[in-house]
């Protein structure tokens, strides 16, 4: 009997403890991170494809033409991090390739594309003499690329679909590596035999002896496409229409600046890229390297990713993918 009493006291304790926990959870849920008013955060990644963003930041184009708005710049290591930061409301504008944007859109992210940024040479690089085409890639080869679902992965899948009818043909041979790690792994000539990469790593690798290209981005895609686009959240578009305008203008200005003064741009960029001014100028004017605010290739990416089931089957029209359609090019 006494034993029973003890148990019920324990039970009561347990219940009251749980009540306290419930209450405290509700109290603390009140103080989740509130967004600081009037701050716009812009996030991009490493690589030459983002050069106009760097110019825009260095020349303070956006800061100079907005009032009462604080601009914050962030560099994040990969697209997934940008996507998560945008979901958390920490980042308003993010730069990424089209496939990761579509994956997020498909899963319900409230975001749309603002503008294009760059068209870049992408390539599948190898040190193995024996690999001349995709068909020469054996099961033992390992392919380094930034991550599954990245534009490099989707391009590889597109090429695999076209040549072998199976987009997933190489999916079990992928190794996730950021571009610098992937380059080092390829150059050490060990088990990473192939690297799908972008500028400036693709330039450095192609200047290396014994490294050659199996496939380029345009062949894989079947035409030209925007490599990187700028994406804005719904929150940003609805609440900051003037900043949106100014952002687009500044972006156009810096793209124009790079295209018309590559020498000056290289001088400005060299501080941030750890590449010499001469090499930088060579890289940003490399054939196929094109800074451009048009959005190209969106439909083809969408159709392919839907067919290969990287995204769901619900159809979207162009106004669900772009905030404004005047930069869209079919």
């Amino acid at each position: 009997m006494i034993y029973f009493c003890k148990e019920s006291i324990k039970m009561k304790k347990l219940i009251s403890l749980s009540l306290i926990m419930i209450i405290s959870i509700f109290i603390f849920s009140g103080c989740t991170a509130e967004k600081v008013e009037n701050t716009i955060t812009i996030a991009d990644q490493y690589g030459l494809a983002y050069a106009p963003v760097q110019i825009m930041k260095d020349k303070e184009l956006l800061e100079n033409s907005t009032e009462n708005v604080k601009i914050k710049w962030k560099k994040l290591a990969n697209t997934a991090a940008i996507r998560e930061a945008m979901l958390a409301g920490e980042v308003d504008i993010g730069f990424m390739a089209i496939p990761p944007f579509l994956i997020g859109k498909d899963k319900g992210m409230e975001w749309k594309i603002i503008s294009g940024l760059s068209i870049c040479p992408l390539g599948l690089m190898t040190y193995k003499e024996s690999i001349k085409t995709l068909a020469d890639i054996s099961e033992n080869d390992r392919i380094a690329l930034p991550q599954p679902g990245s534009v490099q992965h989707i391009l590889l899948a597109m090429a695999a679909k076209r040549e072998f009818g199976n987009p997933a043909r190489f999916d079990n041979q992928l190794v996730t590596m950021a571009h610098p790690d992937g380059m080092n792994a390829l150059l050490s000539r060990k088990e990473i035999t192939i690297h799908f990469t972008s500028p400036p790593y693709i330039f450095k690798e192609s200047e290396e002896k014994g490294i050659h290209q199996i496939l380029n981005g345009i062949e894989a895609f079947g035409g030209e496409f925007s490599f990187i686009v700028g994406v804005g959240t719904e929150d940003f578009y609805n609440n900051y229409p003037e900043v949106y305008r100014v952002f687009l203008q500044s972006l156009e200005q810096s793209i124009e600046f790079i295209n018309s003064n590559p020498g000056q741009a290289a001088r400005l960029l060299t501080e941030n890229y750890d590449i010499s001014e001469i090499d930088l100028k060579k890289y940003i004017t490399w054939p196929g390297m094109n800074y451009d605010d048009k959005i190209r290739g969106l439909d083809d990416f969408f159709d392919f990713m839907q067919e290969a089931q990287y995204i769901g089957s619900k159809d979207m029209n162009i106004s669900q993918l772009l905030w404004e359609e005047d930069l869209y090019e079919k």
Binding site: T79, A80, R83, P100, I103, G104, D106, K107, M109, Q147, P148, G149, S150, N172, Q173, L174, V175, T176, M177, Y310
Partner: peptide, 23 residues
């Protein structure tokens, strides 16, 4: 960090894959 070390990968790779596909 490394991704799949063989063709299937392990639990960490499973989580990572789900993360990059925003699942």
């Amino acid at each position: 960090l490394f991704g799949a070390v063989n063709s299937i990968g392990g639990l960490g790779w499973f989580i990572f894959q789900k993360r990059v596909f925003f699942d």
